[in-house]
Structure formats: structure tokens, C-alpha cells
């Protein structure tokens, strides 16, 4: 088990390096230079341009720039944002919490509603609730989060006045109040995935002999579902929930912009628009790390829930 985790960690680090290189290379190939964005189309004197290039190491060849960046990051220095003129470490630190909170809240919404809806649909398979739930979640999934976000602002903030239009709020209650709408916009988009997988797994499990046996022995339906069915269906549900969470935490980009939440997603957009290499790099690394970490966590959790998978793990290790 430990060997497996260590090996997974090594792969994670390798993936991070590869990702960072790809991002760096793509930004380089894209038209325009950070200096052009920095100067906003104005022409600066050659002396000034040279000074700026040297300060941000833009005068060095591509690989040298990448190497410089990599060695700095290993030492914990993400560099300086060209556009914001400040250290990226502090930019990340000030923006990461709200993105994580938003992602976690959205995941909770996706998982609670998804698993709940999927379970109910499986129990009422083929009947009206099943049809309504299955159709409903697919409808929700069909609307992109930024559009449903705008619609939610329109209905719940502008017309009804229940929620604030933008921002992240201060303090626990206020923060929650601010994050409900964006988290719903985000979470509902993945509800369908979780619900579909839950429903399929539950339908499968509910048809198994041990469930029939439990029912025959006169156990209450609550007991049957809660103790026998769900536990056995948990594997696929954990997998899909983990993937959903990983996707949601790293997928806050558009929703952050719509709801005026200045987290990592908004920072990423600014970085891309400004060709702020170092910022895009840093956010990409953070998002990739989160994604890989969650998938790792899911694998470990899967093992804890279903020790049978340990055989495979041991076999691998």
C-alpha cells in the first residue's frame, strides 16, 4: 500500500513537470508577447523595453526561461506577476481559499443531490419519479455553469433579492451566503453525472441476491438500502464523486468571473489574457496538483471502503 502511494506520488510529480512544460510552451507559441500586453499597445522607448525584458527574463531563450522558472519553483518561488507587479506566491495565497471553499461547496451539492437523486431514481425505477429525476438532472447538466449562473443572478439576486450579485463575503455566514449561488451553478452541472452513475450502480446492486435475501428476511426497506445496497454501491459512487470534486475545484474559472469572485480561476483568466506566463504556470500547477491529489485520495478511499481491491494493489506493488 505504501509503495503504491509513493509510486503514485512520483508519477504525480512527473505529470506536474510535463504539464508545466506544455503550458509554458503553448503560451510561448501563442501570438503576442507579455510586453505588448504590459504596454497595452503603447510604444515605449527601446531603453525601457530592454529594461523590462531583462527584468522578467524575456530576453532569454525559451528553454532558459523555462529552466529559470522551474528551478525557482522548486525553491518555492513562483516569481513575479508582470501585470500585477507583485509576487505570485502572495497572489496564490490570497486567492486559493475562496476557490477551494467554492469547489468543496459545489462538490457537496453535486454529491448530495446526485447520490440522493440517483438512489431515489433507482428505488422507483421506471416510474414517474425516475423519469422526472433522470430528465431533470440531464436538463441541469445541459446548461453551462456560466449561463445558469447569470440566470440565477437574474432571478435570485436581481428580481428576488435573496442573494448578493457578486463577491465572496467576509466571515463564515456571509461567505456561505455569497457562495450558495455560484456553488449551485457549478454543482448542478455535475449532478447528472453523479446521479446517473449512482442510479445505474444501485439498480445493479438492488437486483443482487443478498438484497433479495435481506428483503426476504423481512428487513425494513431503509435498512436494506442503507446497510446493504449503498455500501456495496459505494465504490463506483466514490470514484465518480471524487472525479466530480476534482473537476469542480479546478473548474471554477468561468463561474468565478460571472459571480465576481476573485479566486484562482479569475486569476487564471487574467493571466491568460495578459500573457502573464508565470501566473498561468503557477495556477496550472496548483490546479494540476489538486486534481492529482484528489484522484490519489479517491484510490486510497476506494481501498478503505472495499478491502478486496487491496489484492490488486498489493499485486501491483
Amino acid at each position: 500500500m505504501l509503495g503504491y502511494v509513493l509510486r503514485r506520488l512520483a508519477v504525480t510529480v512527473l505529470l506536474l513537470v510535463v504539464t508545466s512544460f506544455i503550458v509554458f510552451a503553448m503560451l510561448h507559441v501563442a501570438p503576442g508577447s507579455p510586453l505588448e500586453v504590459l504596454t497595452g499597445g503603447r510604444r515605449l522607448s527601446d531603453t525601457t523595453l530592454r529594461a523590462l525584458s531583462a527584468r522578467y527574463a524575456l530576453d532569454k531563450p525559451f528553454l532558459a526561461q523555462y529552466w529559470l522558472w522551474l528551478t525557482n519553483v522548486v525553491q518555492g518561488d513562483f516569481g513575479e506577476s508582470i501585470a500585477a507587479r507583485q509576487s505570485i506566491g502572495s497572489l496564490l495565497a490570497s486567492r486559493a481559499p475562496v476557490t477551494l471553499q467554492l469547489g468543496v461547496l459545489a462538490s457537496v451539492i453535486a454529491i448530495v443531490f446526485g447520490v440522493g437523486a440517483g438512489t431515489v431514481a433507482a428505488m422507483r425505477r421506471g416510474r414517474l419519479p425516475d423519469t422526472l429525476i433522470s430528465g431533470g438532472v440531464i436538463g441541469l447538466a445541459a446548461v453551462p455553469a456560466y449561463l445558469s449562473g447569470l440566470l440565477m443572478i437574474l432571478v435570485f439576486s436581481v428580481l428576488l433579492g435573496w442573494f448578493p450579485v457578486f463577491g465572496a463575503g467576509e466571515g463564515v455566514a456571509d461567505r456561505l451566503h455569497h457562495l450558495v449561488l455560484p456553488a449551485c451553478a457549478l454543482g448542478f452541472s455535475l449532478c447528472a453525472l453523479v446521479a446517473r452513475v449512482t442510479r445505474a450502480t444501485m439498480v445493479d446492486v438492488l437486483g443482487r441476491e443478498y438484497v433479495e435475501a435481506a428483503r426476504v428476511r423481512g428487513m425494513s426497506e431503509r435498512h436494506v438500502i442503507g446497510r446493504h445496497a449503498i455500501r456495496n454501491a459505494l465504490g463506483p459512487i466514490i470514484t465518480v464523486s471524487g472525479l466530480a470534486a476534482a473537476y469542480l475545484i479546478t473548474g471554477t474559472v468561468l463561474v468565478e468571473v460571472v459571480f465576481g469572485i476573485n479566486g484562482l480561476g479569475a486569476l487564471l483568466i487574467q493571466g491568460v489574457l495578459g500573457k502573464d506566463f508565470a501566473v498561468v504556470q503557477a495556477v496550472a500547477i496548483v490546479f494540476t496538483s489538486i486534481f492529482l491529489l484528489i484522484t490519489l485520495l479517491v484510490d486510497v478511499l476506494y481501498f478503505a471502503v472495499d478491502p478486496r481491491t487491496a489484492v490488486g494493489v498489493r499485486g501491483e506493488a
Partner: peptide, 10 residues
């Protein structure tokens, strides 16, 4: 507020 529609709503 980076999004125009959000700014108008606010």
C-alpha cells in the same frame, strides 16, 4: 467586477 452583466446586475 470582470463580467459586464454582473456589473450591471450589481
Amino acid at each position: 467586477l470582470g463580467d459586464t452583466q454582473t456589473l450591471l446586475a450589481a
